[in-house]
Design a binder for these strands. Structure first.
Length: 425
DNA sequence: TCTGGGGTCCTAGGACCC
DNA sequence: TCTGGGGTCCTAGGACCC
C-alpha cells in the first residue's frame, strides 16, 4: 500500500503555526509580486475567492475582510523539511512529491492497523510542527490521491482514509468523482473524454486501456491501470538531479529599458548557476526568454526565446552569464514594455561523469580547478553571509524589476534577526 | 498600477541520412 | 518528364502538476 500525506492548505497553515491569531480568519497567501492568491484558508474559499485570483481584482469587501500575506518561501521550505523528517520515522520509503505532499511506502503494515498508523502519523506531525495533515492510503498513487481527498473532505474519516482497489466503497466513490478531478486530468483532456462519453472516474476505469492510449497517450492509459489498482506510475526519485533549471520572474512593473533587462537576466543566470552547482551538474546550453504582458489590450506584444550552446559544459557563473547576455542581446527588441524574462539551463550533465570533448581538453586542469574553487568560494560566502554578498556585476538600487512583497511575515525558522524583531517589537 | 514560478512527460513534425 | 521511402534524432509546444 501507498500513503499520500498532504498538509492542509500548506502555506496558510505555516503562517498560522506561528500566528495563532490567524486561526478562524479568512487567510490567503499571495504569489510573487503579491500578484495572485495561491493558497487559501477554508474561510477564504468560503468567501468565493478562487485559486489564482488576481489580487487587484478582488472585491474591496473581501480585501478588507481577508488577511492577505506575501509568500514566505524560506519559512515554507523549512517547514516542509521538518514534516518530511517526521515522515521518515513512519516509513523507510518517502518520496517527496512537492513542497506539501509526500508518498510513503506502507508495505508490510497490517491492513487492520493502517488506520491507527495513519492517525499516529497525523498526531506526531501536528504536535511537532503545528501543521494539520491528511493521509490517504491505497494500492496505487492515483487511488491514494482519491483517498486523500476523501480524508480531507469527509469529517467522518478524521483525516485518514484507506481505500481498497475493489470494494463497494471504492466504486461508490469513483462513480461520484468527476473525471476532471482526477490527478492528471485537467480541462483539455476532460473535454475530449466527455466527447467519448466518459465523465466520471469510474467510467474511465472501465474504459479499454488500448483505446484510451490510442485516443490520448500512454499517460492516460497508465491512469486507467492505476484506477483499477495496478501500479503504473513511477515517481521520479527526487534525489535525482533536475534535467532543467529555470529562474524567471515577472517585473515589479513593466520596463522597456535594456539595462533593466540585462540586470535581471544576469541575476537570474547567477541564481540558476547556484542551483546548478548545488546539484553538482554542468550545463551545455543556456536559454533566455522574455515577453511582454498579455493583459493590456492593444499594447504591442512580443515574446521570444533563444538557446545559446556553450563551448564546453560549465557551471561557472561567468560562462553562464556571458552566454545569457549574448542570448538576451539576440532577442531584445526596443519599443516594448516587458513583463517577464527568465534563464533556463539545459542539457545538464553530471559534473563527475562528464565526457571530455576535444574542445574541453584544451582547457587545462589548472583553469578548471581554479574555476571550481572560485565558484565554491562564492557559493559559501553567499550561503554564510547572506544572499548577494558576492555577485557578478553592479547592484542597482530600487530597480523597477525588484519584487514587491509588502506583506511578508517574518522568516521565523531561518532568520534569528526577524524572530527577535517579533519578540521585542 | 497591480495577473506566479518551477518543474515533468509526451508527441508531432522537421531535419537529416541512406 | 519523371522527383522515394523509411528510420532516427532533435526540438517546440501542449498538457499537466503543485
Amino acid at each position: 500500500m501507498i500513503a499520500l500525506v498532504d498538509v492542509n492548505d500548506f502555506y496558510v497553515s505555516c503562517e498560522r503555526a506561528f500566528a495563532p491569531r490567524l486561526e478562524g480568519l479568512p487567510v490567503g497567501v499571495l504569489s510573487n509580486n503579491d500578484g495572485c492568491v495561491v493558497a487559501r484558508s477554508r474561510e477564504l474559499k468560503a468567501l468565493g475567492v478562487a485559486m489564482g485570483a488576481p489580487m487587484h481584482l478582488l472585491p474591496p469587501a473581501i480585501r478588507r475582510q481577508a488577511v492577505l500575506l506575501s509568500s514566505n518561501y524560506a519559512l515554507y521550505g523549512d517547514m516542509s523539511r521538518r514534516v518530511n523528517a517526521i515522515l521518515a520515522e513512519f516509513s523507510p520509503d518517502v518520496e517527496v512529491y512537492s513542497i506539501d505532499e509526500s508518498f510513503l511506502g506502507f508495505a508490510g503494515i497490517e491492513p487492520a492497523t493502517l488506520e491507527a498508523h495513519g492517525q499516529r502519523l497525523r498526531e506526531t506531525v501536528r504536535r511537532d510542527t503545528g501543521l494539520p495533515v491528511c493521509v490517504g492510503v491505497a494500492p496505487t498513487r492515483v487511488l491514494a490521491k482519491v483517498a486523500n481527498r476523501l480524508a480531507k473532505r469527509q469529517p467522518a474519516f478524521e483525516g485518514v482514509c484507506p481505500l481498497e482497489a475493489d470494494s463497494d466503497v471504492t466504486r461508490h466513490v469513483l462513480e461520484r468523482l468527476p473525471v476532471v478531478e482526477l490527478w492528471g486530468v485537467a480541462r483539455r483532456t476532460g473535454e475530449r473524454l466527455a466527447l467519448m462519453g466518459i465523465d466520471t472516474a469510474w467510467q474511465l476505469r472501465q474504459a479499454d486501456p488500448a483505446r484510451i492510449r490510442r485516443a490520448f497517450s500512454v499517460v492516460m492509459e497508465r491512469l486507467v491501470w492505476e484506477l483499477r489498482g495496478h501500479p503504473a506510475i513511477d515517481i521520479e526519485d527526487l534525489a535525482e538531479p533536475r534535467q532543467r533549471i529555470l529562474v524567471s520572474r515577472s517585473f515589479g512593473r513593466l520596463t522597456g529599458e535594456p539595462s533593466d533587462l540585462q540586470a535581471a537576466v544576469r541575476q537570474h543566470a547567477a541564481r540558476a548557476a547556484e542551483k546548478l552547482r548545488r546539484q553538482g551538474s554542468l550545463a551545455r546550453a543556456v536559454q533566455v526568454f522574455l515577453r511582454t504582458s498579455p493583459f493590456p489590450v492593444g499594447a504591442p506584444q512580443y515574446r521570444n526565446s533563444v538557446v545559446v550552446p556553450l563551448a564546453r559544459p560549465s557551471a561557472d557563473s561567468r560562462d553562464l552569464l556571458e552566454a545569457a547576455g549574448r542570448g538576451l542581446a539576440a532577442i531584445l527588441r526596443e519599443g516594448y514594455r516587458y513583463q517577464k524574462c527568465g534563464v533556463m539551463l539545459l542539457d545538464l550533465v553530471s559534473g563527475q561523469a562528464r565526457q571530455l570533448s576535444l574542445l574541453e581538453e584544451v582547457q587545462s586542469e589548472t583553469t578548471r580547478g581554479r574555476s571550481q574553487r572560485l565558484m565554491a568560494t562564492v557559493d559559501r560566502l553567499n550561503r554564510e553571509m547572506g544572499r548577494d554578498t558576492v555577485r557578478f556585476g553592479l547592484p542597482r538600487q530600487d530597480s523597477p524589476w525588484a519584487l514587491r512583497c509588502e506583506r511578508r511575515t517574518p522568516r521565523y525558522t531561518t532568520r534569528w534577526d526577524e524572530l527577535m524583531r517579533v519578540k521585542t517589537g
